[in-house]
Design a protein around this nucleic acid. Structure first.
Lengths: 161, 161
DNA sequence: TATTGTTATACTCTATAACTATA
DNA sequence: TATAGTTATAGAGTATAACAATA
């Protein structure tokens, strides 16, 4: 239960923070995964992919899905295959631009996802219900700095090539 | 790169926060994993297990490792096997209490882990370097509330049985 | 040749459950 | 019986690399 008892002897604050962040994320993620499994017989990556498509009704290329899900291309193909087999997602060809499919939710997919998203939202709200609106906002903002810093770093790396 | 573009249409603040938290954690975690692989040819769970042992020089039972790593027992056996094969960890029997081994770092394990931990710390410090000491402390505290709330929930659940 | 997507492969991690051995 | 640990199994998730097809 306490992964935080893990740090190196020097324990700088950043390390303590990271271990706690990892613990919190895992706690929530474990619960979301098991609920998705129990209630909808699905997995987090499948849910993720559908969520991306719901936000982009016109569809997304495999390419874009890969980038947004932070996963390599081959995996996106596999997850998409599963969802197509379940009938919640479809590959729509674009004429004159053959291999650049677009993947979209089907009507059934939109319906199924709607129900899942409703539940998912409830789990997440419950996970953070001990925080005030102010605190949620504060956390969001602080993590925003972390994310932006990471992106800036990656950009720097690219520019030095 | 932007998993946050994933939420349901209602977008309550808690959901936005969760998606951002998940993104941040994955960014850092991916980097840690790949560095551990490249520089030390090891994995995060293996590193975790060694870190737990470093904090408990007298050793830990499989039992305790399982709880602390938030992973089921069978897996701990497997990870321990790997580390024993590498010679960085050992199973020390306790007389008159046979199956209750204690797992400990070997001398070589302590040395190897020391070097890994030093690097690991540097990666983490870099990941959060955009935050002031104050902000790190604030994040740590807010996440503490989330963690505690989760633990309290689990406790409630047990008591109703 | 560069880009997009797929296929094949291999490996790590995981949970579950059946099993063994001890107390 | 209850507890500690192991083994076996199956599945998820991932990266890598080879491959095909297109532009």
């Amino acid at each position: 239960m306490d992964m935080e008892a893990r740090g190196h002897s020097e324990h700088p604050e950043a390390l303590r923070l990271w271990l706690r962040m990892l613990t919190c994320t895992q706690l929530v993620e474990k619960q979301v995964r098991s609920q998705l499994r129990e209630q909808f017989d699905t997995t987090l990556p499948r849910f993720d992919l559908m969520a991306q498509l719901e936000r982009n009704p016109e569809g997304l290329k495999m390419n874009e899905l890969s980038r947004r899900m932070m996963v390599t291309g081959g995996n996106v193909t596999g997850i998409t295959d599963q969802l197509v087999a379940e009938g919640v997602v479809e590959r729509a060809g674009v004429e004159g631009d053959r291999p650049a499919y677009r993947v979209r939710l089907t009507a059934r997919g939109r319906k199924v996802f709607g129900e899942m998203a409703r539940q998912h939202e409830a789990w997440i709200v419950a996970a953070f219900e001990s925080l005030s609106a102010r605190e949620v906002e504060s956390l969001h903002k602080l993590l925003g700095k972390v994310k932006q810093h990471h992106n800036a770093q990656q950009l720097d790396k690219l520019e030095t090539i």
